[in-house]
Nucleic acid binder design. Structure first.
Length: 890
RNA sequence: GCGAAAGUGGCGGAAUCGGUAGACGCGCACGGCUUAGGACCGUGUGCCGAAAGGCGUGGGGGUUCGAGUCCCCCCUUUCGCACCA
């Protein structure tokens, strides 16, 4: 054992144990039917950007701690790592610097893997996977074919963001604000044929199965998914078009308001628009709307509602009333039927629209009121279009609605829909806002879509035996045009698998979310060349017991993964509905930003925190900040996500060099609850290091006596009161820490260990003079502390464990998560708070098994308490055993 | 605008089946040890007050012997959604 935990030794200790783990294959696991206690601990796989940032450190420290905890508890723990290695940055590097995407990606992976190893994360590296390797994306392609077979993959025309200046397809992020991120040109929408996965076929299941994961997933993630799926129950209603053999179908969730409909409003793309007698005006209007739309606008700002009367009339099937048909920009063509009935009295949007075009407003729902009976307005008379200052959107009593008047909204909704169904002009319906998953990307660096186009045979899937369709090494990376693969003749030109004639390959690649939708199943059997994985292996490890990652993936990734699992279930690959039992979304690591106004107005120049000298006042607040480089004052700004810009990052590598991976890990887990954002302040890490140093030197000081101490407490002789107290603290701490671990409450777990370490520091005995029982108590405390520290700081824990005389290391059978003895953890003396009229007036000590009377007597005997109740009448006394006594006096 | 969550010392945060508010750490102050230290050790540290004591968990009300915790109203912040009929 190294004598001290100093800067130099830290590096040696960490290196030593990393080497040992690697040599012994310490974290390598296999499925083993005999080991029923198994645990799959998974963190979201990183994109190999090339450098580790503090967000990674946090994410993987959280997971690693859990993996260690479970291992120490005797679980067979699968803890793998891989790379989400397809995606745009590799292509950008190719365009900017001419380096090939594969080389760039492989180099980044190399570097990041070594950084992960330097952190000492306990991954089974033999299971490493990377999305860009053909052995992996072969199975993306295989799944694509399975989707196709099942009718779940299909092709349709769909718009993409298009920069007219650069002649290139842009992602949503690249076209935010409606302008091209590079050249600033206005982004257009272009229609091209693209592949989709029919996730909507699983909408209902994705919603219903949330019941299975309710307990293990954060409420807000479930809410976000629920909103994203956007189920709504309502009815389709057909309005007959006057003087035409045509009907227009609308979707509504409020059939009960149909007597208040003043118009049918259709989206500008609705087929009915073509039928308008006012062709020219309508055409001009539609064009204007389309032009306005092609300029994407900033999120949050609504387009003003605009519409035009098409001159068509529709007949309300309930009232027989004739209403005009309008076309308007506020009706979405992609949702429902692309047509709605407009009920301004009871819908915000229709109300705005009616106000703008002075359309009549008929109130047909009244608030349920006990004082005033609902008035039955005559829908045909003038006076019932009472002035409303705002729409009434709640449920209430139906009025002015013929036979339906007097019903409650809730009943009318159901009965009116049933009526429409019987009469043949409508039906009950459920709609979703969830859209099918567009998987085509006009990009090079992704898995090729395994499809061949043949002039004779049409769309032909690549036969399974021909997989993988291998991505070529290079293509033309001009950044312009559509799919770079289209420029690679050897790739494009092929023969048709059906007729052997000349044919062309699909040149789009798959969305990278495809890769990440099933990767954790592949970890279970990463080298399988015959199938995506062996079913038995997957059945042993999955579902994932704990998944850890950023909340930014709460919707897309996690929804796709759930969808994929249900699909795999349906083709017989797995036998469960949900892939992830428990989900934890960790907060971001954010840093204070330092900046100065740049030359261009509105622009800011950011500084790396390492280049800024900060002066703080005596309360620790920032008083001033100065650039080290030029001595000029710098502004201090808000906190930004660390991975966001290069200049606000704290380099984990320099942290590790200065403090060691253990201290960095400990601090990052201690500084805040895992789900909170973490403000990075370097000062805090000193505390973590100090704590480790203290524990280390205590272990070093006592190691000989600890090793020599009796093996069990019965042979240790009589325990002094001090030693009993220490044992009590030890067992109490084990209890607290174990419970905290189950809920990933690492911050309080660390705090508890610090308290135990402080208690040990107060133990007034020295190795030389202490008795065998003292030695036993100290060893029990130290061994427990070391074991509990292992998940956070495995290197130094191993070193101390060895120092305490254990040769096999923390992963041998000799090391087990400590258990606690309730009896020993119990305090025998309790401090009771004494209140007089609810105010704290004193504290008394009573024995833990003191009853109510004894506790009350002790409280009333307290001198200070007596001075407060003297001369007053005791009205009553409340005794909460073990906690407090409240004396109520008058 | 709608929905959700949250507001506790100078800071990160403890404590929620209602029961000693501020654990643990950072920072800060004083002292010790040191040639020196941004090392280490000790003590203190919610605010006001010399003390006794008073006040204190965003603000206001309420329930209760007792409220950070429960109820009502308001304010603020963060996140999500944003014409989904």
């Amino acid at each position: 054992m190294y004598e001290r935990y100093t800067e130099r030794n830290i590096q040696d200790i960490e290196e030593k144990w990393q080497r040992r783990w690697e040599e012994s294959g310490a974290f390598e696991v296999e499925q083993d039917a005999a080991r029923e206690k198994h645990f799959y601990c998974l963190e979201m796989l990183p994109y190999p950007s090339g450098f580790l940032h503090m967000g990674h450190v946090r994410n993987y420290s959280i997971g690693d701690a859990l993996a260690w905890f479970k291992r120490l508890q005797g679980f067979n723990v699968l803890h793998p790592m891989g790379w989400d290695s397809f995606g745009q940055p590799a292509e950008q590097a190719a365009i900017k610097r001419g380096v090939m995407p594969r080389e760039w990606t492989d180099a980044n992976i190399e570097h990041m893997r070594s950084q992960f190893k330097r952190m000492g994360f306990s991954f089974d590296w033999r299971r490493e996977i990377a999305a860009h390797r053909p052995e992996y994306y072969k199975w993306d392609q295989w799944f694509f074919l399975k989707m196709l077979e099942r009718g779940l993959a299909y092709k349709k025309v769909s718009p993409v963001n298009w920069c007219p200046k650069e002649q290139t397809v842009l992602s949503n992020e690249q076209s935010s604000g409606g302008v091209c991120w590079r050249c600033g040109a206005a982004v257009e929408k272009r229609d091209i044929e693209q592949w989709f996965f029919r996730i909507t076929a699983y909408a209902e299941q994705l919603l219903d199965d949330m019941r299975e994961i309710e307990r293990g997933w954060p409420e807000r993630v479930l809410t976000m998914q629920r909103n994203w799926i956007g189920r709504s129950e309502g009815a389709y209603i057909d309005f007959q078009i006057k003087d035409a053999d045509e009907r227009v179908r609308v979707f509504t969730t409020r059939v009960d308001t149909i007597y208040g409909a003043n118009a049918v409003v259709v989206a500008v793309d609705h087929p009915l628009v073509e039928k308008s007698p006012l062709k020219e005006d309508v055409r001009r209007f539609v064009e204007r709307v389309r032009a306005a739309r092609s300029l994407a606008h900033a999120p949050g700002e609504d387009e003003e509602k605009e519409g035009i009367n098409t001159g068509l009339a529709a007949i309300n099937p309930f009232s027989g009333e004739q209403v005009p048909v309008w076309a308007a920009n506020y009706v979405l063509s992609e949702y429902g039927t692309g047509a709605v009935m407009s009920v301004p009295a009871h819908d915000e949007r229709d109300f705005d629209f009616a106000q703008k075009y002075s359309l009549p407003i008929h109130r047909v729902i009244e608030r349920i009121s006990h004082e005033q009976p609902a008035i039955d307005h005559d829908p045909t008379s003038e006076d019932q279009s009472v002035a409303m200052s705002e729409p009434f959107t709640e449920y209430g009593i139906v009025v002015s609605s013929g036979d339906w008047s007097g019903k409650l909204s809730e009943d009318a909704l159901r009965e009116m829909a049933e009526f429409a169904e019987r009469e043949g002009f409508g039906e009950r319906a459920v709609t979703y806002r969830l859209r099918d998953w567009g998987v085509s990307r006009q990009r090079f660096w992704g898995a090729p879509i395994p499809i061949i186009y043949c002039d004779a045979c049409g769309v032909v899937p690549v036969p399974e035996s021909d997989l993988p369709v291998v991505l070529p090494e290079r293509a033309e990376f001009t950044g312009a045009g559509r799919s770079p693969l289209a420029t690679v003749a050897e790739f494009v030109n092929t023969t048709c698998p059906k007729c052997q004639g000349a044919a062309r390959r699909e040149t789009d690649t798959m969305d990278t979310f495809v890769d990440s939708s099933w990767y954790f199943f592949r970890y279970c059997d990463p080298r399988n060349a015959e199938a995506p994985f062996d079913r038995e292996k997957v059945a042993y490890w999955t579902p994932v017991d704990q998944y850890i990652g950023g909340v930014e993936h709460a919707v897309m990734h996690l929804l796709y993964t759930r969808f994929w699992t249900k699909f795999m279930r349906d083709i017989g690959l797995v036998s469960f509905d949900e892939p992830v039992r428990k989900l934890m979304t960790q907060g971001m690591v954010v840093a204070e930003t330092f900046y100065r106004d740049a030359e261009e107005p509105g622009q800011k120049l950011y500084f790396n925190p390492a280049d800024v000298e900060v002066v703080r006042d005596d309360k620790g607040r920032v008083a001033s900040a100065t650039s080290i480089n030029d001595g000029h004052a710098v502004e201090v700004g808000s906190f930004e996500k660390m991975s966001k810009s290069v200049n606000n990052g704290v380099d984990p590598h320099s942290m590790i060099s200065a403090y060691g991976a253990d201290a960095v890990r400990l601090f990052v887990l201690f500084a805040a609850p895992v789900e909170n954002d973490l403000r990075w302040q370097e000062a805090g890490i000193e505390g973590a290091l100090r704590f480790l140093r203290r524990v280390y030197s205590t272990v070093y000081r006592w190691r000989a006596e600890a090793v020599a101490a009796p093996k069990d407490s019965t042979g240790a002789g009589e325990f002094s009161p001090e030693a009993r107290r220490l044992r009590q603290e030890t067992h109490r701490t084990i209890k607290r820490v174990t419970e905290d671990f189950e809920d990933l409450r690492y911050n309080t777990a660390v705090a508890a260990m610090m308290e135990l370490s402080n208690a040990l520091g107060d133990f007034n005995s020295s190795p030389e003079s202490a008795s065998a029982s003292d030695h036993f108590a100290v060893r029990e405390c130290l061994e427990s502390l070391v074991l509990m520290l292992a998940p956070f700081c495995p290197h130094v824990a191993e070193e101390m464990w060895e120092g305490l005389g254990h040769a096999g290391g923390l992963l041998s059978n000799d090391a087990r998560w400590p258990s606690f003895d309730e009896q020993l953890a119990r305090r025998d003396e309790l401090e009771i708070a004494v209140q007089v009229n609810g105010k704290l007036r004193g504290r008394v000590s009573v024995s833990a098994d003191a009853g109510e009377d004894e506790t009350r007597d002790a409280a009333l005997a307290d001198e200070r308490v007596r001075s407060w109740i003297e001369g007053k009448q005791i009205v009553k006394t409340v005794v909460v055993p073990g906690r407090l006594v409240n004396v109520v006096v008058r």
